[in-house]
């Protein structure tokens, strides 16, 4: 009885130690990013290539999810609003929930799944097969070439993808509304645009930069620090998704609190 208690205590201590250890390592990794990002030479070509892969190649996925988000949100909210006789608020409500919360978080989660795991697996396999060491010995800074470019690309592309998802979601909402009635596009759009204020757009956009940064940073961190052996590539990809998704929720929570405080 006593023995199991001590061993439990020990395993908790080890778990906590590992967690804090990891947080320390991630912080160092992020610090290194900020130290190297401004120093020339800039890896422009690789950065643009990553923007293409992370941004453009995610468009189909984001289009489908964005459209369904708008559509489903409209269909689900209608009965509730109808109960209060507030059906005419439907466009405003859908647009607000989409732009403030749903599109940023869902798009970021989708990208955590697609982009963060992709980066984790790519860098992980480069690490395991000594490609990162090969760059290092040919006097090329692998951190700059691989990590800095990818983190910059996600930080820039995720916000753009979210804005795109906002727009697609609004279109989905329009179709959702017209399943049950006939609202003309001009009235729908003007209602949507009227309801959105700066204080809705600004914090929602700001947090997507953080989502993007963390999606890239965690993917790179997990891949770059993969252990030896092929199975660690899978582990790196997997734990990149889990950690990135979790951090998206945490950032979102913090963002909501901050928005409440200041706006």
């Amino acid at each position: 009885m006593n023995a199991t208690l001590t061993s439990k205590k020990e395993s908790i201590t080890i778990y906590l130690k590992d967690t804090f250890n990891d947080i320390g390592k991630v912080t160092l990794f992020a610090t290194r990013f900020f130290r190297e990002v401004l120093k020339p030479p800039y890896e422009m070509k690789e950065f643009l290539k990553q923007c293409y892969i992370i941004g453009y190649k995610s468009l189909p996925l984001v289009t489908i999810t964005g459209f369904i988000m708008g559509l489903v949100l409209t269909l689900q909210s209608r009965p509730t609003l109808a109960k209060f006789g507030a059906e005419s608020w439907l466009p405003s409500m859908v647009a607000l929930s989409l732009i403030r919360e749903i599109a940023p978080v869902i798009t970021a989660l989708i990208c955590a799944g697609k982009v963060s795991s992709g980066i984790g697996a790519e860098l992980g396999s480069m690490k395991v097969t000594e490609q990162i060491d090969a760059m290092e010995v040919s006097a090329i800074n692998p951190f700059k070439y691989l990590v800095v470019t990818r983190i910059l690309a996600t930080t820039l592309m995720i916000p753009l993808l979210v804005i795109y998802a906002d727009a697609i979601g609004v279109i989905g909402g329009y179709i959702g509304i017209n399943i049950h009635g006939d609202v003309n596009l001009y009235r729908y759009l003007s209602q949507v645009l009227e309801s959105i204020t700066f204080s809705d757009i600004f914090p929602a956009t700001m947090k997507t930069f953080f989502f993007g940064f963390f999606i890239g940073m965690i993917g790179c961190f997990k891949g770059y620090n993969a252990a030896n052996g092929t199975e660690s590539v899978g582990k790196a990809a997997n734990s990149a998704v889990v950690t990135a998704s979790l951090s998206i929720f945490i950032i979102d929570m913090i963002a909501v609190q901050l928005t409440d405080l200041f706006l």
Binding site: T129, E130, Q131, A134, V137, A139
Partner: peptide, 20 residues
Amino acid sequence: LNEVRVRIGFLFQNAALYDS
């Protein structure tokens, strides 16, 4: 270190070619 490294060639055990 990088100044020395450019004067050294290193052939890795598994070649370590850049896959991409």
